[in-house]
Design a protein around this nucleic acid. Structure first.
Lengths: 335, 335
DNA sequence: TTGTATGCGTTATCAT
DNA sequence: ATGATAACGCATACAA
């Protein structure tokens, strides 16, 4: 346990006042070139490391932005996080993560903890904290919301039109000749699941295809539920030639259920997902899905935060979902 | 921007001294029940939130442990991170993450940044920071290493025997009747890649099977390299009935290459990976692989850290890799 | 049991 | 341009 080098120690060693050292460190005022150079040499020699706590306490700013992610290893949010990190890169602000595990209480505690650390700004990815609480948080710190919409904070929310993405991919299946399209929903308490189901229905309506409740099975966004839902689909008496899973993870599960029954994708059944997870490029076959520009969303959030911190206006860029057609969809075979 | 409630403010409001409030907060000394209750009421009314910076500065402890992860969304390390979080749960210590992106310089900066935040302990997951620097870091703070071994710090390193896992899974293939087994290596500058190749060779030796360099293709642990390596394997003139990829991600890539050539797994070619990523349960077919008890490793690291912080001894539990046999391997077909 | 005084390491406000 | 000094918000040793 080596003692930490303090600024005062450096000052003594260099024969100057602490203020001078501080000025050099922060670049807040002019210091004579000779002194500056000499002090910097001492700084390096002693391997001085500023104490972020003391600095934050004295200056009122910690030069850090807190990021609440749900699952530290969620592939979907991971890309957003990278976007945030990249967008913040070089700004001097650092990222501090905490995870909420999709549990409102844990999320709120994580946010409290981040605020207790006096982060200068906050980014919240998804989650289930009540809107009301987020509005309160937004009053005390710049708050960027990703993947969710909070009434009253629309200008700082980054969430794409999920209905449109679902409509587009369902439409794609219809164009391929599919008439009986099954849908595996996400956790219906989640707006994304609701919107994607709505998009599915919208596409059906447009094509004047009847909506058949038997073709819709509930899932919860996880692989296992996709597997189970697909299995239920087979056990029912409905026929279908395509499956739209409300996210890629459930599509993976459904893919396995198909595989187990000896059905080929896309020859026998077309399969699509939503999110375009990194892994979807390498499934067999690669998955047709809807891509959300998650990285760009993260970057945009970072930009919004930086501008907010600098007191400058910033308009979030208009981002849109994009159809990624790979090999899991094919024209319906004429029986 | 609401002003933050300070402890002094609470003290004034409650008609007691700041020390009393502090004592109640930290539980460091006895306070009369009436006063305690009254102050707690004020605390709640004002929605007091302690300033972590001031607290850390004054007490010398921040009640936080820093975690350096390589990629915030790596599925492999994600499980370890969850283990750490779970192991630290309820201890009062919080987790602060930073990511290093497998880039030595960025990793060292992240570590510096964590230390500047005065974390009470550190956990480093994998990474490419030179051992020498880690030994230095270990002198100033309890440091737990996961997924790597640093000479001199063996007692605080959690890394399983990779050679043994590779040997076991190769042996499994041999037992299934495979004689010509291809191997896709990881990034050979990484010890894991070296050890897994060594394990592959060890199993071959045991079975008195000749080692054929043509059956070994280099990869870099990412999906794309697995795809490419498998493709190269086909383009060569060697025949083989099984492929051992040095990790699951590359196995996914190889799986796709197989799929593209119309080869069935495991009917035509058996395929195995390493790591047992969450997704490997749901590939088609589910992947036979080597499971590392990553969650338990995380928990063990947390325990080690907590004991270290409490000045108590703690021996890391003996963890071992485990063969997970699923459906991507089958007995070699008699041609 | 409670209050007072001091210090934590830094920045910021004064002087000079 | 530089130094002394006062915050920053809290914990803690010391008094009472």
């Amino acid at each position: 346990m080596e003692a930490n080098i303090t600024l005062a120690r450096v000052a003594r060693e260099a024969g100057v006042s602490a203020s001078t050292v501080s000025r050099i460190l922060t670049g807040s005022a002019n210091v004579s070139p000779e002194k500056r150079e000499h002090v910097q040499r001492v700084l390096a020699k002693l391997n001085y490391r500023p104490n972020v706590l003391a600095r934050g306490l004295a200056s009122g700013r910690t030069m850090s932005v807190g990021v609440l992610t749900q699952d530290i290893s969620s592939p979907f949010y991971g890309d957003m996080v990278r976007g945030i990190e990249q967008g913040l890169g070089g700004s001097g602000y650092q990222t501090v993560f905490m995870s909420g595990h999709w549990h409102a209480k844990a999320e709120m505690e994580a946010i409290e903890s981040l605020l207790a650390r006096r982060v200068d700004a906050l980014a919240v990815l998804g989650g289930s904290v009540p809107d009301e609480q987020l509005r309160t948080v937004a009053q005390s710190v710049p708050l960027s919301l990703l993947g969710r919409t909070v009434a009253g904070l629309e200008g700082q929310c980054l969430r794409l039109d999920q209905l449109e993405g679902a409509r587009a991919i369902t439409h794609h299946l219809i164009e391929m000749g599919h008439r009986r399209i099954a849908h595996i929903t996400g956790d219906m308490s989640h707006p994304d699941a609701q919107d994607r189901l709505a998009g599915y229905r919208a596409a059906l309506d447009e094509a004047q295809l009847a909506f058949d409740p038997e073709l819709v099975q509930q899932g919860d966004f996880l692989e296992a539920s996709g597997y189970l839902a697909a299995t239920r689909l087979f056990e029912g008496r409905s026929v279908f030639s395509a499956v739209f899973a409300a996210n890629d993870q459930m599509a993976y599960g459904a893919r396995l259920a198909l595989h187990r029954r000896g059905l080929r994708v896309p020859d026998d059944v077309s399969l699509v997902g939503y999110d375009d997870l990194p892994g979807s490029t390498y499934t067999s076959p690669p998955l047709t899905t809807v891509r959300q520009p998650t990285f760009q969303m993260g970057q945009a959030a970072a930009q919004w935060i930086l501008h907010q911190l600098a007191g400058q206006p910033y308009l979030l860029p208009p981002l849109t979902v994009q159809l990624v057609i790979r090999e899991s969809t094919a024209r319906r075979r004429s029986t």
